[in-house]
Simulated scan of single mutants.
Amino acid sequence: MTQRVIKNAKIVTATEEFTGCMVIEDGLIRSIERGDTSVASAEDWAGDWLLPGLVELHTDNLEKHLVPRPGVLWNAHSATVMHDALCAAAGITTVLDSIVIGDMDQGGSRSQTQHMSIQALHECRAEELLRVEHLLHLRCEVSAPDIVEVFEQYADDSLLELVSVMDHTPGQRQWRDLTKYRLYAERNGNFRDNEYEALVAERREHQLKYAIPNRAAIIAASHARSLPLASHDDTEVEHVEQAHEERIGISEFPTTVAAAKAARAAGIGIVMGGPNLVKGGSHSGNVSAAELARLDLLDIFSSDYVPASLLQSAFLLRDSVGWTLPKAVNTVTRNPAHAIGLTDRGELAPGLRADVIRVRMSGDMPIVRGAWHKGERAF
């Protein structure tokens, strides 16, 4: 039996915060108490925050390590291990690596990395190279001609915990604003006007041909395997109504207040991006996370492309929006865990997994001073 006792920590449970102590035994939380302890060997956290390990449902951070520059592919094992270290340093103890399949850019970086990244994830886990737990989120581009074929290769993957259906065809959902879409499309090089117009026309043609049957096939296959489903970039009320009819439980990054309200009315969990809150708005020109939070139309944060934004978002909800800290912390711990059926983590409670982090404030900035996964030091 291995045991650790922590004292003088500001503990945040799912419903309250207080100064107290915690006992961790054999990878699980054994007890949580208010006040002090008489155990001589107890670690004094000197008033630092003791929070649950963060749970990440959707991060593109691995891509930045796989493709550090346009046209440059990095070794997948090295990229995975560095991504893992950054997650641990950000306080994330459970991470769903979101892998895009069905790349709309034929021959683009995502089509080149989708298979190698999943293979590297399995191999790094098998070799015990990772600090925290990595699972799989397949992001399915329904307008891509090959999406169903690729999905079927991974539908029974042992690490698969979430499937999202998305459609990045220009002119709708995230890319209603074609000016912003062009800026995004030209991130790796400019198009002539006729080239850009041809690109948009091709993507719209693919949507008309493939989106409806591909979406239906992926949703049916996911339900057959009891896989949680998310809809991506819901914009119109009709998008949410469709997701509800399809028995989808999560709305990732709704782009309008109307869509978020429809999701709440339908009992669909609402995910927003941490960078949206930290930076004060959406880089795509869509609804801000702060506005949805003030309307209480937000359940879960994703760090999206900046792992550190997850913890920052929780404290910003408290400091800028006025949420209680337990409610805010739930958006990056308990709520995402429960949304995909992981009930053994995500909060500080006896009997749950000892995924915990130590946080110290530097001014108004929360800094992770330590992270433990199943009671073992990860950072």
Rank of each mutant, 00 (worst) to 15 (best):
A290I: 15
L292V: 04
A293I: 03
A293N: 05
R294V: 10
R294A: 13
L295S: 09
L295W: 10
L295F: 12
L295E: 14
D296Q: 14
L297V: 11
D299V: 10
D299R: 04
I300C: 02
I300H: 00
S303M: 06
S303V: 11
S303L: 08
S303R: 03
D304H: 07
P307Q: 06
P307G: 05
A308R: 05
S309P: 05
L310F: 08
L311M: 11
Q312H: 11
A314L: 07
A314G: 06
F315T: 06
F315R: 03
F315S: 02
L316R: 02
L316T: 04
L317P: 00
L317Y: 00
R318E: 14
D319N: 12
D319A: 11
S320D: 14
S320K: 14
V321I: 15
G322I: 13
W323A: 02
T324W: 08
L325A: 03
L325E: 09
P326W: 07
P326T: 14
P326E: 11
A328S: 11
A328F: 03
V329Q: 03
V329S: 02
T331D: 03
T331L: 05
V332G: 01
V332K: 00
V332D: 00
V332H: 03
T333G: 10
N335W: 06
N335M: 13
P336N: 09
P336C: 08
A337Y: 02
A337I: 05
H338Q: 13
H338Y: 11
H338C: 10
A339D: 11
A339E: 10
I340H: 03
G341W: 14
G341F: 12
L342D: 07
L342A: 10
L342M: 15
L342R: 15
T343N: 13
T343K: 15
D344Y: 14
R345H: 12
G346W: 00
A349G: 12
L352I: 12
D355Y: 06
D355P: 04
V356N: 04
I357D: 00
I357T: 08
R358P: 01
R360E: 10
R360Q: 14
M361H: 13
M361P: 05
